[in-house]
């Protein structure tokens, strides 16, 4: 059943690929990259889920269990969640660099259209 989540992640990733390939607006292309990043987060968190699991937090365990039982019990994978957590923050920083570049390109070529940015083609 978690395959639905994996498929949704693949779908969002491909929407990002489609945006990057077809759009000519540079900001839109960066948005496509953001979508591809988001797909990565969804995939990681879906992979961390286990059937009927709780969050990997030992604070206030569900009634009837102790912290130790919970630590050995049915929880989501904290390592994958950690990877997604850092990826989210790094994603913002990388997006900022891309956008700063886009603004510079727009100022230089006076256009957001990627077709106008072809100095290297001669």
């Amino acid at each position: 059943m978690i395959l639905v989540n994996y498929a949704a992640a693949a779908l969002v990733f491909c929407l990002g690929v489609y945006t990057v390939l077809t759009r000519r607006n540079l900001v839109k292309i960066v948005m496509g990259l953001s979508l591809m990043e988001s797909a990565g987060y969804v995939l990681l968190i879906s992979m961390a889920y286990r059937k009927g699991s709780t969050a990997p937090v030992l604070l206030h365990p569900p009634s009837g269990t102790t912290e130790q039982e919970l630590a050995h019990g049915n929880v989501a994978d904290p390592v994958l969640q950690n990877i997604a957590l850092t990826a989210v923050v790094i994603g913002v920083a990388v997006t900022a660099v891309l956008l700063a570049g886009v603004v510079r390109v727009a100022q230089h070529y006076r256009s957001l259209d990627s077709d106008d940015v072809r100095e290297l083609r001669g």
Binding site: S46, A48, S53, Q81, N82
Partner: peptide, 9 residues
């Protein structure tokens, strides 16, 4: 999906 930390971020 039980990932409150990532949800916060």
């Amino acid at each position: 999906l039980g990932a409150p930390d990532v949800a916060h971020a």
